[in-house]
Simulated assay, not measured.
Amino acid sequence: MRRKVIGAGGLLVLVAAALTFYFWPMSAAQPLLESDQLLVMWEKTTIANAQPDIEVVRYDQLTQDQQNRLWALLEQARYQRTFATPFSDGSAKGLSDEMLYVHGFKDGRWCSTIFFSSNGEFSADYKNYRLSGAPQLMDEMLNVCQ
């Protein structure tokens, strides 16, 4: 009986450790680490008079100072896996009306992209995650880009 209790306790500790590791927050800069240049695109979708309209603003002439500030914001931002992450394909559902895309380039070639919506949907490396503080991060990044 005592062995079963110890075994069950050990199993619970192992499961708790695995879940803690799985849901551990990760830096939003991590998927872009190979990049040496960033391109930011902001997209806002509106519907007026039953007609959809998508406003897209590209920030492709960022100074080195702006890029450094964007990197700092991304390094502080945290995303984490969800129970659905292993089964996702990077296509997000239930997005909000605002999206921010960050494309990373190295030596003039595209190497990775992350995107997130103002409601916290986050996509990187063809998987979906949750991003903490997405609306604030989006506003701060747009302020840096402007």
Rank of each mutant, 00 (worst) to 15 (best):
R78G: 01
T85V: 08
E121L: 11
G133I: 04
K106F: 03
Y126H: 10
L14K: 06
L11S: 01
S91W: 08
E34V: 15
V13G: 00
Q61T: 15
A77W: 10
F105S: 06
V15Y: 05
L38D: 08
T85C: 05
K4E: 05
A84G: 06
H103F: 12
D139W: 03
Q37Y: 12
Q61K: 15
T85F: 05
C145W: 01
E140H: 09
S123C: 03
Y22L: 04
R109A: 10
G9R: 06
E140N: 13
Y79T: 11
L137N: 06
S123W: 06
Q30Y: 10
L14Q: 01
L131K: 07
F21W: 14
F21E: 02
L95G: 04
T46M: 10
R130T: 15
E75L: 02
V144F: 00
G94K: 04
V5Q: 00
G7P: 01
M41W: 02
S117M: 13
S96R: 05
A92F: 00
M1N: 03
D36W: 04
V15S: 03
L142S: 07
L11A: 06
G10N: 02
L11H: 02
K127Y: 09
V15D: 03
G10P: 08
V144Q: 01
A84W: 12
D36Q: 08
R69F: 09
V5W: 00
L100H: 03
